[in-house]
Computed example of a mutant assay.
Amino acid sequence: MCRPRRRRRHRGPRRLVRGIGVSTDATGDLAAAVRELAALVHGRILDEASAARARRLVAEAAELVAACPPRPRWHEGPDRRARSAALSPFSGSLNVVAPPLTLDRVTLDDATPAIEGRVRLDRLREGPPHSVHGGVLAGLFDEVCGAAQRLTGRPGGVTARLLVRYRRPTPLDTDLRLVAWVADERTRRVHVRGRCEAGGVVTAEAEAVFVRVNTWPASGEAVGGGTATAT
Rank of each mutant, 00 (worst) to 15 (best):
P13A: 03
A82D: 06
A222V: 12
P89M: 08
T203Y: 00
L172I: 02
R168Q: 07
A148W: 04
S84I: 05
A85Q: 13
V119T: 05
V202F: 06
N214M: 08
E126S: 00
P72V: 04
A228G: 15
T152K: 04
A138H: 07
R161F: 13
A67E: 12
P155N: 04
R15N: 12
G200V: 04
P129K: 01
T215I: 08
G127T: 00
T174E: 12
Y166M: 07
D173W: 04
R83L: 03
V17M: 06
N95V: 07
A98L: 13
D47T: 07
A66Q: 12
R11A: 11
A208K: 02
R9Q: 13
R80N: 03
E221Y: 07
T227C: 09
D79F: 11
R165H: 13
V202A: 08
T24H: 14
R195A: 15
R80W: 08
D104I: 06
R6I: 09
T170K: 02
R118C: 08
V136R: 05
R18K: 07
H10T: 10
G135R: 00
E185A: 13
V209T: 12
S93G: 14
L178H: 15
V182E: 01
T174R: 05
G220C: 09
G127A: 01
R186M: 08
V213D: 06
G224L: 09
P4V: 00
T27K: 03
F141N: 01
A39Y: 08
R177M: 09
